[in-house]
Write a protein that binds this DNA or RNA. Sequence first.
DNA 1: CGTTGCCTTGACGCCGGGGTCAACGTTTAG
DNA 2: CTAAACGTTGACCCCGGCGTCAAGGCAACG
Lengths: 137, 137
Amino acid sequence: MRIGELAERAGVSTRTLRYYEARGLLPARRSVNGYRVYGDDDLRLVEQIRTLQDVGFGLEETRPFVECLQAGHPAGDSCPASLDVYRRKLAELDVLIGELQAVREQVGAQLVRAEAELPRGPEPLCELGRAGQDEPG
Amino acid sequence: MRIGELAERAGVSTRTLRYYEARGLLPARRSVNGYRVYGDDDLRLVEQIRTLQDVGFGLEETRPFVECLQAGHPAGDSCPASLDVYRRKLAELDVLIGELQAVREQVGAQLVRAEAELPRGPEPLCELGRAGQDEPG
DNA sequence: CGTTGCCTTGACGCCGGGGTCAACGTTTAG
DNA sequence: CTAAACGTTGACCCCGGCGTCAAGGCAACG
């Protein structure tokens, strides 16, 4: 099949496929006229890349999976190098999630604190209202 | 003070300060020769921006805080608009953290599954029989 | 007077993952 | 023969938050 068909079958743009090729992830045979020619194996490669991309893996991180498939293994994660990527990703995610949770706590605390301040004295010039808890309206 | 001193005091580069100005976050008076001139208030503005940036707020998200300080309020989050940014950020964080946790579970499951496969049959073609040609030499 | 060091604006580079032309070649249907 | 619908390479654009020159102005010191 040619690039248009592969693109449609994989649900990506032709630009994306050429980009993958430029990155060395998706080698293509060429027909006489220079057109890229792909097989069903290549569809599997692209699907593997997309699956990983969709959950947040960078292109470079998909490389071991792609090479694993290219080596004839049944799945992209049938190779130790791919498992290492999984493990590194898990570690990264744990760190990231932890940081985000810390930020969440911090922002949440700031919000609570600021909300407590607001109704009493939003403006320093409103010192008048501070003498007595007098709410207009 | 001039830009170099403010940069040093705030712990940022002069480039950063000019960038903030270009983004409309940090207005600067000019001396006769065209040099930017800042006051202590401006240091507080920059500190507010950095504090928010450091926990992951985008520059645009710091705008309400900056405007709040510029309006003479005691803190950047002394204004309702700032609190709204806090709330939106919390919501964003919750969504993001949730997504990342889902991804984490998914990747973790994949890892466990793939690890279970690996030691038993990393190369099915190998176990099924080496019907290939022998390596010469 | 020169040198050093601060300041000015302007402009390009980076990173990831492509989008979107442009300009041109090829194949196929009518 | 022409036009449509594919394909090719090359090159610029996007986003955020600056880093890093480049070329020049201005101030202070000796």
